[in-house]
């Protein structure tokens, strides 16, 4: 891994503190995000040839659709919910791109 020669021990300390804040704070953010997205889908992928069926979708009091995951003994997540969070659709534009998306 390439590392920068510019950093001092103080820089490193700040970076570690930053990472700690990000990894702890993201838990709160991920839970909070449940109330902030427009839609989500939960599927059951049961391994059959056509095994994609909608499942475990409920609607919360605030009208936001949430998907409940298994919350018993296996495959648990820390908040008990699993979502994909939508965003505004991209828009068509012109000009040189800042970056290219693609597989790597």
């Amino acid at each position: 891994m390439k590392t920068s020669a510019r950093r001092s021990p103080a820089d490193r300390d700040r970076a570690i503190a930053r990472l700690r804040a990000l990894t702890i704070g993201s838990s709160i953010a991920s839970i909070a995000a449940v109330g902030g997205f427009g839609a989500m889908a939960a599927l059951t992928y049961d391994g059959s040839p056509n095994g994609i069926t909608t499942a475990a979708v409920t609607t919360a009091d605030n009208g936001v659709t949430t998907g409940t995951t298994r919350t018993t003994t296996t495959g648990t997540t820390s908040s008990g919910t699993a979502t994909t969070t939508a965003t505004a659709a991209p828009t068509t534009t012109t000009g040189t791109a800042h970056a290219a998306t693609g597989s790597s």
Binding site: T87, T93, G102, S104
Partner: peptide, 28 residues
């Protein structure tokens, strides 16, 4: 105008290559 992103299949494609370019304001 947003973050301009070239839609490619290979991430090694130069950002200034021809192709479909979209803009996003936030997110990913």
């Amino acid at each position: 105008g947003g973050w301009r992103i070239l839609i490619s299949e290979d991430s090694d494609t130069p950002a200034d290559a021809p192709g479909e370019v979209v803009a996003i304001q936030t997110g990913a």
